[in-house]
Protein backbone atom coordinates (compact mmCIF):
# COMPACT_ATOMS: atom_id res chain seq x y z
CA UNK A 1 0.00 0.00 0.00
CA UNK A 2 1.16 3.51 -0.78
CA UNK A 3 -0.02 6.83 -2.14
CA UNK A 4 1.61 7.41 -5.53
CA UNK A 5 1.89 11.06 -6.57
CA UNK A 6 2.37 11.60 -10.30
CA UNK A 7 4.31 14.82 -10.82
CA UNK A 8 3.86 17.25 -13.69
CA UNK A 9 6.91 18.37 -15.54
CA UNK A 10 7.45 20.55 -18.53
CA UNK A 11 10.69 21.74 -20.08
CA UNK A 12 12.54 19.29 -17.81
CA UNK A 13 11.39 20.96 -14.62
CA UNK A 14 8.91 20.02 -11.92
CA UNK A 15 5.95 22.43 -11.98
CA UNK A 16 4.41 24.41 -9.13
CA UNK A 17 1.26 22.29 -9.13
CA UNK A 18 3.49 19.27 -8.42
CA UNK A 19 4.55 20.70 -5.04
CA UNK A 20 0.89 21.11 -4.13
CA UNK A 21 0.07 17.46 -4.84
CA UNK A 22 3.23 16.32 -3.02
CA UNK A 23 1.95 18.09 0.10
CA UNK A 24 -1.57 16.79 -0.48
CA UNK A 25 -0.49 13.22 -1.13
CA UNK A 26 1.83 13.16 1.88
CA UNK A 27 -0.91 14.41 4.18
CA UNK A 28 -3.29 11.82 2.74
CA UNK A 29 -0.71 9.05 3.29
CA UNK A 30 -0.27 10.11 6.93
CA UNK A 31 -4.04 10.15 7.34
CA UNK A 32 -4.48 6.58 6.08
CA UNK A 33 -1.29 5.26 7.69
CA UNK A 34 0.84 4.56 4.63
CA UNK A 35 3.80 6.03 2.77
CA UNK A 36 3.80 8.72 0.10
CA UNK A 37 5.91 8.11 -3.00
CA UNK A 38 6.38 10.26 -6.08
CA UNK A 39 6.60 9.31 -9.74
CA UNK A 40 8.50 11.43 -12.25
CA UNK A 41 8.20 10.68 -15.96
CA UNK A 42 10.78 11.85 -18.46
CA UNK A 43 14.13 13.58 -18.09
CA UNK A 44 14.17 16.19 -15.34
CA UNK A 45 17.00 18.51 -14.31
CA UNK A 46 15.79 19.16 -10.76
CA UNK A 47 17.19 17.55 -7.60
CA UNK A 48 14.71 14.73 -7.03
CA UNK A 49 16.00 13.70 -3.58
CA UNK A 50 15.10 17.20 -2.38
CA UNK A 51 11.43 16.40 -3.05
CA UNK A 52 11.58 14.61 0.31
CA UNK A 53 11.03 17.94 1.97
CA UNK A 54 7.45 17.87 0.69
CA UNK A 55 6.84 14.64 2.60
CA UNK A 56 7.59 11.76 0.19
CA UNK A 57 9.99 8.99 1.24
CA UNK A 58 10.71 7.71 -2.26
CA UNK A 59 10.90 9.21 -5.71
CA UNK A 60 10.58 6.80 -8.62
CA UNK A 61 11.61 7.90 -12.06
CA UNK A 62 11.17 6.53 -15.55
CA UNK A 63 13.98 8.44 -17.15
CA UNK A 64 13.25 8.40 -20.86
CA UNK A 65 13.13 11.23 -23.37
CA UNK A 66 10.12 9.60 -24.98
CA UNK A 67 8.13 10.67 -21.92
CA UNK A 68 8.98 14.36 -22.27
CA UNK A 69 5.86 14.79 -24.41
CA UNK A 70 2.63 13.77 -22.78
CA UNK A 71 1.13 10.92 -24.83
CA UNK A 72 -1.86 9.78 -22.77
CA UNK A 73 -1.69 6.20 -24.07
CA UNK A 74 2.00 5.76 -23.32
CA UNK A 75 1.77 7.61 -20.01
CA UNK A 76 -1.15 5.47 -18.91
CA UNK A 77 0.61 2.16 -19.52
CA UNK A 78 3.70 3.44 -17.76
CA UNK A 79 1.85 4.85 -14.75
CA UNK A 80 -0.30 1.71 -14.40
CA UNK A 81 2.87 -0.39 -14.38
CA UNK A 82 4.39 1.91 -11.74
CA UNK A 83 1.22 1.55 -9.66
CA UNK A 84 1.62 -2.21 -9.80
CA UNK A 85 5.34 -2.08 -8.92
CA UNK A 86 4.79 0.27 -5.97
CA UNK A 87 1.60 -1.46 -4.84
CA UNK A 88 -0.19 1.91 -4.72
CA UNK A 89 -3.76 2.13 -3.49
CA UNK A 90 -4.26 5.84 -4.18
CA UNK A 91 -2.89 7.69 -7.22
CA UNK A 92 -2.77 11.49 -7.07
CA UNK A 93 -2.57 13.85 -10.07
CA UNK A 94 -2.87 17.59 -10.50
CA UNK A 95 -5.85 18.62 -12.64
CA UNK A 96 -3.61 20.53 -15.07
CA UNK A 97 -3.35 19.99 -18.82
CA UNK A 98 -1.36 16.85 -18.12
CA UNK A 99 -3.72 15.61 -15.41
CA UNK A 100 -6.74 16.19 -17.65
CA UNK A 101 -5.05 14.19 -20.37
CA UNK A 102 -3.91 11.26 -18.26
CA UNK A 103 -5.69 10.82 -14.88
CA UNK A 104 -9.00 9.56 -16.29
CA UNK A 105 -7.29 7.19 -18.67
CA UNK A 106 -5.21 5.72 -15.83
CA UNK A 107 -8.37 5.34 -13.74
CA UNK A 108 -10.09 3.42 -16.55
CA UNK A 109 -7.09 1.12 -16.99
CA UNK A 110 -6.93 0.36 -13.26
CA UNK A 111 -10.72 0.19 -13.00
CA UNK A 112 -10.29 2.73 -10.22
CA UNK A 113 -12.92 5.26 -9.17
CA UNK A 114 -11.89 8.80 -10.15
CA UNK A 115 -12.51 12.17 -8.57
CA UNK A 116 -11.23 14.80 -11.00
CA UNK A 117 -11.17 18.38 -9.77
CA UNK A 118 -10.77 17.51 -6.09
CA UNK A 119 -10.82 20.49 -3.74
CA UNK A 120 -9.65 19.08 -0.40
CA UNK A 121 -8.29 16.02 1.41
CA UNK A 122 -10.59 12.97 1.49
CA UNK A 123 -12.72 12.17 4.51
CA UNK A 124 -11.58 8.64 5.39
CA UNK A 125 -13.41 8.33 8.70
CA UNK A 126 -16.12 6.20 7.09
CA UNK A 127 -15.28 5.15 3.55
CA UNK A 128 -13.36 7.39 1.17
CA UNK A 129 -15.15 10.62 0.32
CA UNK A 130 -13.57 13.38 -1.76
CA UNK A 131 -14.91 16.89 -2.21
CA UNK A 132 -14.78 18.29 -5.73
CA UNK A 133 -15.94 21.42 -7.50
CA UNK A 134 -18.98 21.04 -9.74
CA UNK A 135 -21.11 23.39 -11.85
CA UNK A 136 -18.01 25.37 -12.83
CA UNK A 137 -17.16 26.31 -9.26
CA UNK A 138 -20.72 27.23 -8.27
CA UNK A 139 -20.98 24.22 -5.91
CA UNK A 140 -19.15 21.24 -4.43
CA UNK A 141 -20.02 17.54 -4.49
CA UNK A 142 -18.82 14.96 -1.99
CA UNK A 143 -18.00 11.82 -3.95
CA UNK A 144 -17.56 8.38 -2.44
CA UNK A 145 -15.05 6.12 -4.19
CA UNK A 146 -15.88 2.43 -3.83
CA UNK A 147 -13.13 0.70 -5.81
CA UNK A 148 -9.98 -0.76 -4.17
CA UNK A 149 -7.68 1.62 -6.07
CA UNK A 150 -8.60 5.31 -6.07
CA UNK A 151 -7.52 8.10 -8.39
CA UNK A 152 -7.68 11.76 -7.34
CA UNK A 153 -6.86 14.71 -9.57
CA UNK A 154 -6.49 17.83 -7.44
CA UNK A 155 -7.47 21.32 -8.63
CA UNK A 156 -4.38 23.56 -8.80
CA UNK A 157 -4.24 26.27 -6.11
CA UNK A 158 -6.55 24.46 -3.71
CA UNK A 159 -4.05 23.43 -1.01
CA UNK A 160 -1.00 25.14 0.39
CA UNK A 161 2.48 23.71 0.06
CA UNK A 162 3.90 22.31 3.33
CA UNK A 163 7.60 21.57 3.76
CA UNK A 164 9.55 19.47 6.29
CA UNK A 165 13.23 18.64 6.43
CA UNK A 166 13.09 15.13 4.94
CA UNK A 167 14.94 13.78 1.93
CA UNK A 168 13.81 11.04 -0.41
CA UNK A 169 15.56 8.10 -1.98
CA UNK A 170 15.52 8.15 -5.77
CA UNK A 171 15.29 5.03 -7.90
CA UNK A 172 14.74 4.21 -11.55
CA UNK A 173 11.81 1.97 -12.41
CA UNK A 174 12.42 -0.46 -15.18
CA UNK A 175 9.38 -0.29 -17.41
CA UNK A 176 9.37 -1.23 -21.10
CA UNK A 177 7.97 1.64 -23.14
CA UNK A 178 5.89 1.30 -26.30
CA UNK A 179 6.58 3.57 -29.26
CA UNK A 180 4.34 6.64 -29.22
CA UNK A 181 1.65 6.76 -31.92
CA UNK A 182 1.68 10.55 -31.71
CA UNK A 183 4.32 12.37 -33.76
CA UNK A 184 4.88 15.82 -32.27
CA UNK A 185 5.82 18.22 -35.08
CA UNK A 186 5.92 21.54 -33.22
CA UNK A 187 5.79 22.93 -29.69
CA UNK A 188 4.98 26.62 -29.30
CA UNK A 189 5.48 27.87 -25.78
CA UNK A 190 4.11 31.26 -24.88
CA UNK A 191 7.23 33.16 -23.91
CA UNK A 192 7.61 36.34 -21.89
CA UNK A 193 4.24 35.79 -20.21
CA UNK A 194 3.22 34.06 -17.03
CA UNK A 195 1.03 31.04 -17.90
CA UNK A 196 -2.47 31.94 -16.72
CA UNK A 197 -3.17 28.74 -14.86
CA UNK A 198 0.05 29.12 -12.86
CA UNK A 199 -0.25 32.83 -12.07
CA UNK A 200 -0.66 33.86 -8.41
CA UNK A 201 -2.19 37.13 -9.53
CA UNK A 202 -4.32 37.69 -12.63
CA UNK A 203 -5.29 41.09 -14.08
CA UNK A 204 -8.21 40.77 -16.47
CA UNK A 205 -9.85 43.22 -18.85
CA UNK A 206 -13.32 43.41 -20.38
CA UNK A 207 -15.19 45.40 -22.95
CA UNK A 208 -14.89 48.40 -20.61
CA UNK A 209 -11.36 48.93 -21.96
CA UNK A 210 -13.00 49.94 -25.25
CA UNK A 211 -10.30 48.66 -27.62
CA UNK A 212 -6.98 46.80 -27.88
CA UNK A 213 -5.06 50.10 -28.08
CA UNK A 214 -6.02 50.79 -24.45
CA UNK A 215 -4.46 47.67 -22.93
CA UNK A 216 -1.35 49.57 -21.81
CA UNK A 217 -2.90 50.56 -18.45
CA UNK A 218 -3.75 46.93 -17.73
CA UNK A 219 -0.34 45.61 -18.80
CA UNK A 220 1.44 48.20 -16.62
CA UNK A 221 -0.53 47.06 -13.58
CA UNK A 222 0.11 43.39 -14.40
CA UNK A 223 3.81 44.11 -14.75
CA UNK A 224 4.27 45.69 -11.32
CA UNK A 225 2.34 42.83 -9.76
CA UNK A 226 4.09 40.08 -11.74
CA UNK A 227 0.62 39.02 -12.80
CA UNK A 228 -0.76 36.94 -15.65
CA UNK A 229 -3.21 38.70 -17.98
CA UNK A 230 -6.69 37.54 -18.92
CA UNK A 231 -9.80 38.86 -20.64
CA UNK A 232 -13.55 38.36 -20.99
CA UNK A 233 -15.00 36.37 -23.87
CA UNK A 234 -16.13 39.29 -26.07
CA UNK A 235 -12.59 40.69 -25.85
CA UNK A 236 -11.15 37.37 -27.06
CA UNK A 237 -13.85 37.02 -29.73
CA UNK A 238 -13.08 40.51 -31.06
CA UNK A 239 -9.36 39.58 -31.19
CA UNK A 240 -8.44 42.47 -28.92
CA UNK A 241 -6.45 39.87 -26.99
CA UNK A 242 -5.22 36.34 -27.86
CA UNK A 243 -7.88 33.70 -27.31
CA UNK A 244 -5.81 31.79 -24.73
CA UNK A 245 -6.45 34.73 -22.37
CA UNK A 246 -10.24 34.22 -22.43
CA UNK A 247 -11.40 33.11 -18.99
CA UNK A 248 -14.83 31.87 -18.00
CA UNK A 249 -17.15 28.96 -18.39
CA UNK A 250 -16.15 28.45 -22.03
CA UNK A 251 -12.55 29.61 -21.62
CA UNK A 252 -9.76 29.00 -19.16
CA UNK A 253 -10.64 28.44 -15.49
CA UNK A 254 -8.30 30.17 -13.07
CA UNK A 255 -7.98 30.16 -9.28
CA UNK A 256 -5.28 32.71 -8.37
CA UNK A 257 -4.78 34.35 -4.98
CA UNK A 258 -5.81 37.68 -6.47
CA UNK A 259 -8.05 38.37 -9.48
CA UNK A 260 -8.43 41.99 -10.58
CA UNK A 261 -11.28 42.63 -13.01
CA UNK A 262 -11.17 45.86 -15.00
CA UNK A 263 -14.23 46.90 -17.02
CA UNK A 264 -15.85 43.47 -16.78
CA UNK A 265 -19.56 43.33 -15.94
CA UNK A 266 -19.38 39.95 -14.14
CA UNK A 267 -21.76 37.83 -16.21
CA UNK A 268 -22.46 34.45 -14.68
CA UNK A 269 -20.46 32.71 -17.44
CA UNK A 270 -17.46 34.90 -16.71
CA UNK A 271 -17.68 34.30 -12.95
CA UNK A 272 -17.79 30.54 -13.55
CA UNK A 273 -14.17 30.69 -14.67
CA UNK A 274 -12.83 32.90 -11.89
CA UNK A 275 -14.93 32.30 -8.78
CA UNK A 276 -12.35 29.99 -7.21
CA UNK A 277 -9.99 32.97 -6.86
CA UNK A 278 -9.14 33.74 -3.21
CA UNK A 279 -9.59 37.51 -3.46
CA UNK A 280 -11.46 39.33 -6.23
CA UNK A 281 -11.20 43.06 -6.92
CA UNK A 282 -13.49 44.91 -9.31
CA UNK A 283 -13.06 48.30 -10.94
CA UNK A 284 -16.21 49.25 -12.83
CA UNK A 285 -17.94 52.57 -13.50
CA UNK A 286 -21.38 51.02 -13.10
CA UNK A 287 -22.35 50.55 -9.42
CA UNK A 288 -24.98 48.02 -10.56
CA UNK A 289 -22.45 45.75 -12.31
CA UNK A 290 -23.13 42.19 -11.09
CA UNK A 291 -19.43 41.62 -10.44
CA UNK A 292 -19.64 43.68 -7.22
CA UNK A 293 -21.88 40.97 -5.75
CA UNK A 294 -19.15 38.35 -6.20
CA UNK A 295 -16.12 40.51 -5.38
CA UNK A 296 -14.25 41.15 -2.13
CA UNK A 297 -13.09 44.69 -2.87
CA UNK A 298 -14.37 47.23 -5.35
CA UNK A 299 -14.17 50.76 -6.63
CA UNK A 300 -16.94 52.37 -8.66
CA UNK A 301 -15.17 54.59 -11.13
CA UNK A 302 -13.45 55.07 -14.46
CA UNK A 303 -10.76 52.45 -14.87
CA UNK A 304 -8.66 54.75 -17.03
CA UNK A 305 -8.27 57.09 -14.04
CA UNK A 306 -8.06 54.46 -11.31
CA UNK A 307 -5.75 51.80 -12.76
CA UNK A 308 -2.72 54.10 -13.31
CA UNK A 309 -3.09 55.25 -9.70
CA UNK A 310 -3.13 51.61 -8.54
CA UNK A 311 0.04 50.95 -10.51
CA UNK A 312 1.76 54.03 -9.07
CA UNK A 313 0.71 53.12 -5.53
CA UNK A 314 1.99 49.52 -5.83
CA UNK A 315 5.29 50.82 -7.25
CA UNK A 316 5.64 53.05 -4.21
CA UNK A 317 4.88 50.16 -1.88
CA UNK A 318 7.37 47.86 -3.61
CA UNK A 319 9.97 50.61 -3.83
CA UNK A 320 10.06 50.51 -7.64
CA UNK A 321 11.11 53.82 -9.16
Amino acid sequence: MSVLIVLDQSDNHIKKSAYEILSYGSQLAAQIGTTAEALVLGTVNDDLAALGKYGVSKVHQVNSESLNHVDAQLYTKTIAEAVAQTNASVVVFSQTHTGKSVAARVAARLKAGLVAGAASLPDTSNGFIVRKTVFSGKAFANISIQSPIKVISLNPNSVSVVTTDGTATVDQLSIALDASKIKVTAVNKITGEIPLTEADIVVSGGRGLKGPENWGVLLDLAKVLGAGTACSRPVGDAHWRPHHEHVGQTGVQVAPNLYIALGISGAIQHLAGVNRSKVMVVINKDPEAPFFKAADYGIVGDLFEIVPQMTAEIKKLKGIA
Binding site: K138, A139, F140, D296, Y297, V300, D302, E313
Partner: peptide
Amino acid sequence: TLTSIVNFELPPAKAGCKMVAADNVP
Protein backbone atom coordinates in the same frame (compact mmCIF):
# COMPACT_ATOMS: atom_id res chain seq x y z
CA THR B 1 -20.23 1.97 -10.84
CA LEU B 2 -17.03 2.98 -9.06
CA THR B 3 -18.11 6.27 -7.45
CA SER B 4 -21.30 7.83 -6.15
CA ILE B 5 -22.37 11.29 -5.02
CA VAL B 6 -22.94 11.51 -1.27
CA ASN B 7 -24.23 15.08 -1.29
CA PHE B 8 -23.72 18.60 -2.60
CA GLU B 9 -22.72 21.84 -0.90
CA LEU B 10 -22.97 25.45 -1.93
CA PRO B 11 -19.90 27.60 -1.23
CA PRO B 12 -20.21 29.85 1.84
CA ALA B 13 -21.71 33.22 0.99
CA LYS B 14 -19.18 36.01 0.47
CA ALA B 15 -18.86 38.48 3.32
CA GLY B 16 -19.82 41.18 0.84
CA CYS B 17 -17.78 43.56 -1.25
CA LYS B 18 -15.78 46.18 0.62
CA MET B 19 -16.20 49.39 -1.36
CA VAL B 20 -13.45 51.98 -1.57
CA ALA B 21 -14.08 55.53 -2.82
CA ALA B 22 -12.78 56.36 -6.30
CA ASP B 23 -10.61 59.15 -4.89
CA ASN B 24 -8.98 56.86 -2.35
CA VAL B 25 -6.99 54.38 -4.46
CA PRO B 26 -4.14 54.17 -1.88
